[in-house]
């Protein structure tokens, strides 16, 4: 099952630029963005771009991958806590799965996420690579 290009298009702000929302009253940041702060019903918020470095809180290794990622497996899927405390999940790349560790520092990079077969649309977005500089 591949992602519909229309859905991917709607998610460009998050996938391409990691745009989140920060609510005025609570100061909480949500990613993907929400319209209403679930803690207090606040709707006043500002758009913020998340930082591009963080560390792995936990991860798993996908060895039997869905068809569109079959050729790139095995690969890691990690929950990363970014420098501002926001947590998000994403695919690891440029790393041997045996080297992925909890606490590992990572950097966000823009990569090709999937493609709709040989003829379809290419989808792009963020992935995590080990931080080395």
């Amino acid at each position: 099952m591949t992602m519909f290009s229309s859905r991917n298009w709607r998610e460009y702000p998050q996938r391409y630029r990691m745009e989140a929302v920060k609510f005025k009253k609570s100061g909480l940041t949500f990613f993907p963005p929400r319209d209403i702060d679930p803690t207090n019903g606040d709707v006043e918020c500002e758009k913020v771009n998340l930082p591009d470095i963080g560390k792995i809180l936990t991860f798993t290794v996908v060895r039997i991958a869905p068809a569109q990622w079959g050729d790139v497996g095995p690969y890691g899927i990690a929950i990363v806590e970014l420098a501002d405390g926001t947590r998000l999940m994403g695919q690891m790349t440029d790393v041997d799965v045996n080297e992925i560790k909890i606490g590992m520092e990572v950097r966000v990079e823009f990569r090709r996420v999937q493609q709709e077969g040989h003829h379809g649309v290419l989808s792009y977005g963020y992935k995590f690579v080990p931080k080395w500089w």
């Binding site: 050729d71 790139v72 790349t93 440029d94 990079e109 990569r111 090709r112 290419l122 792009y124 992935k127």
Partner: peptide, 16 residues
């Protein structure tokens, strides 16, 4: 380039 890197992704990183 690995399979998830192409002219678009290289361009984005260099431009940033």
């Amino acid at each position: 380039p690995p399979p998830d890197m192409d002219t678009i992704t290289l361009s984005v990183e260099a431009a940033r």
